[in-house]
């Protein structure tokens, strides 16, 4: 389990990074390396060139803007989970980030890496989709912002172009009185979720995000807070179509979607 050979690049600026992306063949970006590292050690991925983003200055900032928080792509999960700004304005994000992998994984793994990797069961894509975050990307055509719902295309596939990198994500601030819940079911602490549910209650409207069920996070909006949680859960279950896998039967994922949605909704309502 040793990676195949590659050439190593450590650009110091975003411009240099983008230049390398354009000029190098079969290049991969690495930030925390917590997903790419295992795949390279198993030789499932064999880039010829590895571009290390860790020397880019300023990309790990967590900044408060008018109605959103801007979090740099190099912000480590542990920094996100323990940031007072995130806890105050995006408590759902702080809570979900605190469940990623383990302590040592969270010390190194990055927000940008998780978004770009787009694992359908991962926490940050689910939270970004549920909160309606925007992913800020930069490439040779300049910066653009992509709504999370358009960013996650399918299993480990995003709307990023080959010459683009994620530079930050903008998470809308929670309003006063908003409630949230994050529930995930995994076999063990730190394992990827079999199903994860993020729920936000905002002015009597419920928004629900489902991770792990399909090839990207799913978002269901505009449930009324007056509706019975069980009824909401049924509707969501009927709307998802989990894929069958040798490890987890689709039927089981469906059942988990129903149970977790019911519990997440109930938690949002009772926490008022």
């Amino acid at each position: 389990m040793k990676p195949a050979p590659f050439r190593y690049h450590r650009p110091r600026s975003l411009a240099d990074t983008l230049q390398l992306l354009v000029t190098l063949e079969n290049a991969k970006l690495i930030a925390g390396g917590q997903s790419l590292g295992p795949m390279m050690n198993m030789r499932l991925v064999q880039p010829a060139e590895l571009i290390d983003l860790n020397a880019l200055a300023g990309l790990d900032l967590i900044a408060e803007k008018d109605d959103f928080l801007e979090i740099g792509a190099l912000a480590r999960h542990h920094a996100v989970e323990s940031s007072t700004l995130v806890k105050k304005h995006c408590p759902l994000l702080a809570e979900a980030a605190g469940t990623i992998g383990h302590y040592a994984i969270r010390s190194r793994g990055t927000l940008g890496g998780s978004l770009a990797h787009a694992d359908p069961a991962a926490q940050l894509p689910l939270v970004a989709a549920t909160l309606g975050a925007e992913i800020v990307v930069n490439g040779k055509r300049g910066e653009r912002r992509i709504a999370a719902k358009d960013f996650f295309v399918s299993m480990m596939t995003t709307a990023l172009e080959a010459d683009e990198i994620v530079v930050s994500a903008r998470f809308p601030k929670a309003a006063a009185g908003d409630r949230h819940a994050y529930l995930q079911f995994s076999r063990r602490t730190g394992d990827f979720a079999i199903v994860a549910v993020a729920a936000v209650l905002h002015s009597r409207k419920l928004r629900l995000g489902i991770g792990g069920a399909e090839d990207k996070p799913l978002v269901f909006e505009d449930f009324s807070a007056h509706e019975d949680p069980q009824a909401i859960a049924r509707k969501v279950r009927e709307a998802v179509q989990p894929t069958e896998s040798p490890r987890v039967p689709a039927l089981y994922r469906e059942e988990l979607v129903e149970v977790l949605v019911k519990r997440a909704v109930a938690r949002c309502l009772t926490s008022i």
Binding site: M42, R187, R188, T189, G190, D191, F192, P246, R247
Partner: peptide, 21 residues
């Protein structure tokens, strides 16, 4: 699997108890 392929090739697949289990 039913063809005889090992589908438990990593510690993400072969689960052993951790301190929380």
């Amino acid at each position: 699997d039913e063809h005889g392929n090992n589908i438990t090739g990593s510690l993400a697949d072969y689960l052993v108890a951790t301190a929380t289990d």
